[in-house]
Amino acid sequence: MADVRFEAVRKVYDNGQVAVHGASFDIADGELMVLVGPSGCGKSTLLRMVAGLEAISAGTLSIGGRVVNDVAPKDRDIAMVFQNYALYPHMTVAENLAFGLKLRGHGRDEVQRRVRTAADMLGLAGVLDTLPRAMSGGQRQRVALGRALVREPAVFLLDEPLSNLDAKLRHSVRTEIAQLHRTLGTTMIYVTHDQVEAMTLGQRIVVLNEGRVQQIDTPMALYRRPANRFVAGFLGSPAMNMLEGRLERRDDGQAVLDMGAERLPLGRPRLPEGSAGRAVVVGVRPEHLQPGTGEAAFAATLESVEPVGNEVFVNLRLGSRPLVMRLPPRDLPAPGATLPVAVDGAALHFFDSASGQRLEPAPA
């Protein structure tokens, strides 16, 4: 096992494209860290630099306290699981698991021990003589995991390993990866563009955008206190509602967001210092909008209802602005009806309109 440290790590390609802008963060020994962001944000590039598959343009990368900038991939004590299983089609499961160990010169008994241990851990003991083409996608991904597992590396690297699986299999294999990490206690770096995977798997999450680290924290800390508008909009499904306007505090203490054609009542939240008259973006999670009346209520047009089993997503419109509300299953008016909606003023997020950075509420 080993910690991983990025110190001002930068990646610039020959054509001048900057893929990673000076990333600096630590991954603790035994931690499962998730790198998440949209396509092209630099997450896979960071992973490939750890693996030694991409050269580092500047900065320092350390694994277990050893600088590895110029260390060959085979000497880094890492194992990587790719998106496309990369199994040898003419080899059985057992042969796929054992192949890398044999190349490294491990003895027969040691190879058999490691293959047996990995197969038992991943539920592959009954299919060791099976060829990949006769297996499901979930089984093949478990073989790919097993091939990394038998290496007994200091660091596991997983590059979007569930992207080729259907939704049910993704959930199943995701649970297995989490269990595997708890059992092994080995450092894991997991790359995904799926924020649900990131939230459910990561002990901590690195959110990236356009090659820059946006925020690093635990899943719920990111959800409850996003550092900027990008993080707020990226994490959460449905996404956070964003409304832009100027904040006002009325004489009676109530706050209002002046959006021009519409004025949104916000109740009596703690506003950021000096925010009166300031252009801001107000963020509100779908679960913090609810049908109701009161001083922080407004009338919205119900456009459509999306039942997804144990909850309902209600698509609304306030003037020209779309909103999404999350509710438990219930009877609702027909599309086109006007619905009174109340804002939970205590759960609002404020961001600067220009920079997108979070604005903290003034002390109580």
Rank of each mutant, 00 (worst) to 15 (best):
A2Y: 07
D3L: 06
N15I: 02
N15F: 12
V18S: 05
S24P: 11
F25T: 14
D26C: 06
M33Y: 08
G37C: 04
T45H: 04
L47A: 02
A51C: 02
L53R: 01
S57A: 08
N69M: 08
D70R: 14
R76H: 11
D77F: 06
A79H: 01
M80V: 03
V81R: 00
A86Y: 10
L87V: 11
L87C: 10
H90P: 00
V93K: 01
A94I: 01
G100K: 04
G100A: 02
K102T: 09
K102N: 05
L103S: 08
G105A: 10
R108S: 10
R113G: 10
V127E: 05
L128H: 08
P132E: 03
G138A: 12
R142N: 13
V143S: 01
G146E: 10
R147H: 07
P153C: 05
A154Q: 12
E160H: 10
N164Y: 13
V173T: 11
L180I: 11
H181W: 06
M188Y: 06
M188Q: 04
Y190D: 03
V191Q: 01
V196G: 09
L201C: 01
R204E: 09
E210Y: 08
G211S: 05
P219Q: 08
A221V: 13
R229S: 02
F230E: 00
G236E: 04
S237F: 13
E244S: 08
E248Y: 05
E248L: 14
R250T: 12
D252H: 15
D252P: 14
G253Y: 14
V256F: 08
E262G: 00
V280R: 00
L289Q: 13
L289W: 12
T293P: 01
A299W: 06
A299K: 06
R317V: 05
S320M: 02
R330A: 15
P335E: 12
P335S: 14
P335M: 13
A337V: 14
T338K: 11
G345M: 07
L348C: 14
D352C: 00
A354N: 05
Q357G: 04
L359R: 05
P363G: 10
